[in-house]
Structure formats: C-alpha cells, structure tokens
Amino acid sequence: MTIGVGGWGARRKPMALIRAIARSSLRDLTVVSYGGPDVGMLCAAGVVRKLVFGFVSLDVIPLEAHFRKARESGAISVMELDEGMLQWGLRAAGYRLPFLPIRAGLACDIERLNPSLKTVRSPYADGETLLAMPALRLDAALLHVDHCDERGNSQVLGPDPYFDDLYAAAAAKTYVSCERILPTEALLERGCVHSLLLDRGSVDGVVEAPFGAHPTSCSPRYGIDAEHLKTYSAAAKSDEAWADYRARFIDVTDAAYVAAAGGESRIESIPHTIF
C-alpha cells in the first residue's frame, strides 16, 4: 500500500494518524512525503518498505535520527527525488496523466540512482529532452488541517497550504484529521474563503484530533515542539529507548498522548519557530 503524508518537514503533519498507523497491523508501506517525524516514526515502527522523498528533516533539528538509522542499516529502500519532482508526480496522478515533463533531476545522480525514470523528447521544433516524472498514485493521503465540516470541506489557517491538496488529488482515498470539526457555516467565521483548501468531493473521511499535528506545528494554533522532538530523536539511540518512547507516546489514547506531551495549555503555548 502506498500512502502520502501531507505537511512539510516538522510542519502540519498528521501525527495522530501516523501514531495510529504505528499501532496498526499495516506493514510494508510505501510512503510518499516531504518528510519529517512522520517518516522517522513509521521507520522506527518498522512498517516502511520504501520511501519516496525529497528530504527528511525535523527543521529545528536538521537530520532525522530514525530515518538515518533506517537508511544506514539498509532497512528501507528509497526513491530519492527533487522536491519539485515529488510535486510533479502528485500533480500527474491527480490529473490522471502517466507523467509530467520536468527538467529537475536530469544530468545529476537523481537520474542515475533511479533507473526507472525515463526521459521524453519534445515533439515540437525545440526537440528538448525532459525527464518524464511518473505519476505518484497514492492509495491513501493523510492530512491534518485546522477545521473540517462533517462532509470533508477543509480549512487551513496557516500561511502555507504546503502540497496537501495535491496529495488529496493523487489519492484514491483521502483522510483528514483536524483540530476541530465545525458546522459548515462556521468555517468562514474563522478564516477567509482562500483558507478553504479542500472540497468535500476530494475527502473521504474526517476525524477530530485536537493537537493532532503535535510535535509538529499547526500554525497559527501551536508551533513546533522542539523539546519533544529532542526526546523523540534521542529514542533512536537504542531499542530500549524506542520502546520507552513508544510506550509513553504511541501505544496510548489520543487524550493520554496530549497529557503526556504536557497538556493542552502547554501545547497551545508553544511559540512559533523563528527561521
């Protein structure tokens, strides 16, 4: 099964859904992501077979310890892409195209290390050679937003939609967790019409998961929890450390997670990282 995870690095990742996958019987996943702790946590849980990525970073901590461990031990296979190629693959899937042409990835080791990537020649007078970025079709997209209504209309209040709408378009099924489910008419009381990122036709399921992006940010409500990410990173040091992290923060209910992470008022007061 191939899943795509919205957000970017340590920003607006659907971590409550990721923790649920780590608890589930799902195995051998192909994960497509602008990666942060979503990737590291699924690697540490041993459920990733292949990663399709442009980067994995915790932003406030540049390198992702669990992802490093998985790569350096040879536990996962990868398709390393340029960030823009990943976007192009999602778009191609969303538009039901076999590929979209792009220059990124040519003439460097992205092409060499991914022999499945092919080039195409422009049929027009220019005859340019371009990389044919194949569609990245997803079985499921997992996203986290500020608000949804019960039918799936979804609102993002932060300043960057990242590529969440493209993940939704590329996926057979899209599941959205949100800080709060609101009546449809209340959405525009919270933000302007541009904040309504996803229409209900592209969303298959919604779930209310307050603080469901923690320890990543959900701007404007809360920032990246750098302190928690240090604890999480340190859990890569040994199997025992990971088992301890898992027992405290993954194999628990959502309510217990929020309490273990310091409680609602602490999370709401996490300042926004200054980059």
């Binding site: 990525f53 390198l63 790569r71 390393e80 190629m85 220059r103 460097c108």
Partner: peptide, 12 residues
C-alpha cells in the same frame, strides 16, 4: 555511511 537531508530542491 551517513544519511543527510536528501537532495531537497538542488536538482531543480
């Protein structure tokens, strides 16, 4: 031996 960030946007 050491996994770093990944190619990010460098190819493009």
């Amino acid at each position: 031996k050491v996994q770093l960030l990944g190619a990010r946007g460098i190819p493009g």
